[in-house]
Simulated scan of single mutants.
Amino acid sequence: MAGTAHPAGASQGLARGLAAERDGYRLNLVTCSPPAGRPTAFRFTVTGPGGSPVTDFAVHQTKKLHFYAIRSDLTGFQHLHPDMADDGTWTADLAALAPGTWRLYADFIPNTGARATELVLSRTVTVPGEAVPVPLPAPSDSTTVDGYTVTLQARPMAGAHQLVATIGQDGRPVTDLQPYLDSYAHLSAFHESDQALAHLHPANPVNGDHGGPTLTFQALFAEPGDWRVHLQFQTAGKLHTAEFTLHVD
């Protein structure tokens, strides 16, 4: 029998977190219609190859599961670490969602021994009400958040590429970054056209509360175009999220 043809980019789509099911694991939503304008205890399960909810997850980046939410216009970014009940039901405490279509991602490693691999699955939900799209900000190599200035030094291209971020405050380099998820920063990026996800961590070794000012990432952007980037870092116990639009050639 001839092999089944796969459309161009199908395997890449799986790898970019755009599929609800991969390698026998499936993201199932218990909460299917979150309300607009108020916080939501969003519930979901991950089922395994046998069809039952998975309850054994490996710890990666200090958590058993990372949960992301973003609207179709790449606004409203949330990065959460939900709790799991004994039956495998996860609960993510989402902040209020604006009306529109949202993509929700679960990033995890099933605890299946030496062959365990990281999976990112996602599904979309519709929040009721009139959606008012927000235009994507123009690409920029610098932004400010909470008094910090974050500057990117890169000419990123699709595929593997080095991305360097520098953090300063009042014209001085910041050298007191604290570990966050086992590193000095966490970077999540979403592609404008299809919401493909890329998430990165700096290669800098962790040495207590002495991170910065420069963070070097081995970036892997699956495709060219505009990406909305969220760089999260922590100082004095407070988490900061710097946002950029980054153009990838």
Rank of each mutant, 00 (worst) to 15 (best):
L187A: 04
T47F: 08
V54P: 00
D93F: 06
P128Q: 13
T166W: 05
P173D: 15
F233G: 01
A116N: 09
D182P: 00
R26Y: 03
L163I: 09
V145R: 05
G211V: 13
N207Q: 09
F67E: 11
Y68Q: 12
P35E: 15
T45V: 14
A160I: 13
L29H: 05
L27V: 05
L215A: 03
Q153E: 10
F108T: 05
A242K: 06
R43K: 14
Q162V: 05
Y105R: 14
T101K: 12
N28L: 09
Q195N: 03
Q195L: 13
G13D: 08
V120P: 00
A58D: 08
V132D: 11
V174P: 00
A158N: 04
W90M: 02
A92C: 03
A219S: 10
A198E: 12
P156D: 08
H199K: 09
R228L: 06
A36S: 10
A69P: 01
A2V: 07
F57W: 13
T40G: 01
K64L: 09
G225M: 08
G113V: 12
R172C: 04
A10R: 13
L152Q: 05
A20G: 02
Q234K: 12
P133D: 15
Y68F: 11
V30C: 01
F42R: 06
R16D: 12
D209V: 06
V46D: 02
L136N: 01
S140F: 13
T4W: 15
D23I: 05
T166H: 02
H199P: 00
T117L: 10
D23T: 02
G129K: 15
P205M: 15
F77L: 12
G212W: 15
L14W: 05
W227K: 05
F57T: 05
V120I: 15
L152T: 03
Y180C: 01
P173Q: 14
P137Q: 15
G9P: 01
L14V: 04
S33A: 08
V54A: 03
D87M: 14
M84E: 07
R103L: 12
F244V: 03
V145D: 02
V59F: 01
L119C: 01
V54C: 03
A41L: 07
A138E: 14
A116G: 03
